[in-house]
Nucleic acid binder design. Structure first.
Lengths: 369, 369
DNA sequence: CTGAAAGCGCTTACAG
DNA sequence: CTGAAAGCGCTTACAG
């Protein structure tokens, strides 16, 4: 049952009950002006007995601040964004902010609609993983309308906005360099690598070899490939295009058949660098396929979320991404912007760290026999 | 740069530009009243050139509806709630609603604060996984204040509210019955099983054997244990308390040492029923510990999220929970309540289904990014 | 330190 | 079908 209009615990009613003006009651309850102790007590008592609860909508309408941040994730269903959201939500809560979450599904149109909804809800700022590296006019418009934007995990390069990302190139380079140092010369890479930034794969390799590419203009799996290439070049080990597995889809099943092909070729790799957890899953599945008579003595290195390291058995070398921290840093940065920080744009790059847990045969339960 | 007051694209300014009253402009833009086609065009044109964007705060203040639902998850960082959130967000988006997410961390006090924040933000309804099975007065108060509540995954039994849960007892019973039928008589169970609902474990088993317990009054891991017990009783296979592994903590590491003990006992089990994915991970880790000389020929059945089945190699029997659907059903139900549905309370119980993928040795870890 | 008045941007009766 | 007025619950100048 909703209470009768007059009974509702509004500032006006609390003021009436306490025998003061609404302005005074507002100052006490909102905590924004002067008030004598006696008045303060009277108002607070009245508020308590009436069960007063501030209406943040009304406050937001007047102050222009809703204490809410909007998040546009690519897929909240994935553990990656779940970890990031955890970081975001923790920071938001501490600051007394709420977080509205929406999903773009990597779809530009859905992203536009999500941003529009968030702006209509008057969020104070937006954290987004841009669905499209090039089309970000709607995000730019949000910024110009006074709503700061922080990019998470990925960057739309035309966009003039802060970002918090992981050093995918650097971490991939370290990991692959490590494999090279221990003597591997045939290292495969298994990655999503869907649309090439320039022409085909050969052209990408060629360009990367001539120009110093800015990893920030690339999407994660291409950044990791770039690190793979650079490690080879520095070690002066030839890059073998046949060992570059472009899965083309973000699916373990596709990775599996891709690895199967790689391993059944004439000269299979002695190590595999899996570009992320999904690719690693497919890789392990392929390696374990008994019928295919695939050689099993392969070293595996894979990218994964730091949060999930606890689920690894001993025996895998992983590149741990601090995803939760990615979220909390993005949220902290956004809150600073909302607070009026107008310092120059910031591109925070978190480094991933190598975590060694052993060799592939111990990965997630392959029995060594 | 914020625009000057007078330039801001409000209904009043659009009205002025179109040469109509604010009431008329409001009717056109808000889509809630009559308007002639000519006026409609004039207003819409003016809105477009001014870049009008409705302010949902103002609308909400007046209508008493914010088109926002609040979610209090136990841990959005976990894949479980990530899947559920995905279901919730999809339904919300389709209905034009936003979703504010908060985290209780299984902590009653944080849950109370989260609910308070959501109410101050005037959400139209709340989806919650109650942190405490008994203390739900704050949730009851929300309902009485006119904010419908739907419980997800778990139930606080004193609470008079809808719920959407999984039939943990039934699925566990089916899975264990299957193991019993194939001849296993020494089946271990590995579960969180933190605080017993009645006294100690022996008392729980005793009570469950005498009274027909309502699984809805139990927390998930105890519901699964109940199914385990019932399967034994129906098959007339004695329950061996020594095979019931109470991990006590929701951690793979603890599950690991628990399983280690079980397996190193004089008469180890021939099959293990892992109560969830985390317990299964610890189980696999324990079974793979070479030094401990643990027997490896153990059948493993585990509960997991349907979304993750794609990451399983062939060879594990899993009980797949439709977690995303859990979320979307909770959201749909909540939207009906918000829409004014006053039909009797509903307790929707989704059934989990057995999915066979093979044996333990193929169990994979948790994938990410 | 307190109060009367105006106003945030919208919607809702109520006349016309 | 359209408009003038009031009001949602709060905060913000401005007097006193």
């Amino acid at each position: 049952m909703t209470k009768k209009r007059t009974e509702r615990a509004t500032i006006a009613n609390v003021a009436k009950a306490a025998g003061v003006s609404t302005a005074t009651a507002g100052r006490v309850l909102g905590g924004y002006g002067y008030s004598s102790e006696e008045i303060r007590n009277r108002v607070q008592d009245a508020a308590k007995t009436l069960g007063y609860r501030p209406n943040r909508l009304a406050r937001g309408l007047i102050t222009g601040q809703t204490q809410t941040i909007g998040v546009v994730a690519a897929d909240i269903g994935s553990p990656y964004y779940a970890s990031a959201m955890r970081g975001i939500a923790d920071v938001a809560r501490t600051a007394g902010f709420g977080a509205i979450i929406t999903n773009s599904d990597e779809n530009l149109q859905l992203e536009r609609e999500a941003v529009e909804l968030l702006l209509e809800k008057q969020v104070d700022g937006i954290i987004v993983s841009p669905a499209d590296p090039e089309n970000s006019a709607h995000l730019q418009a949000a910024i110009e309308a006074g709503c700061p934007v922080v990019q998470l995990d990925r960057i739309a390069y035309p966009l003039q906005a802060d970002s918090v990302t992981v050093d995918n190139r650097g971490a991939a380079k370290d990991a692959v360099a490590r494999l090279l140092r221990s003597g591997h010369t045939r290292i495969a890479v298994v990655g999503e690598l869907e649309t090439s930034p320039f022409g085909d794969l050969a052209e990408f390799i060629d360009t990367a070899g001539r120009v110093r590419l800015d990893p920030q203009t690339l999407y994660p799996s291409w950044q990791r490939l770039l690190g793979y290439l650079e490690a080879h070049w520095e070690a002066q080990v030839p890059v073998l295009p046949g060992l570059i597995g472009r899965v083309g889809k973000y699916s373990a099943e596709s990775a599996r058949s891709c690895v199967r092909q790689l391993m059944l070729a004439d000269a299979p790799p002695s190590a595999i660098f899996a570009s992320d957890g999904v690719m690693a899953t497919g890789t392990v599945q392929a390696l374990r396929d008994q019928e295919a008579r695939i050689p099993q003595d392969v070293s595996l290195v894979c990218f994964d979320d730091l949060e999930w390291m606890q689920f690894f058995g001993p025996g895998i070398t992983a590149v741990a991404q601090p995803v939760r921290e990615l979220g909390s840093m993005a949220a902290s940065l956004l809150l600073e912007r909302i607070g009026g920080d107008t310092s120059p744009r910031r591109h925070t790059v978190l480094s991933a760290q190598l975590v060694e847990r052993g060799s592939i045969s111990e990965r997630l339960g392959v029995p060594t026999d």
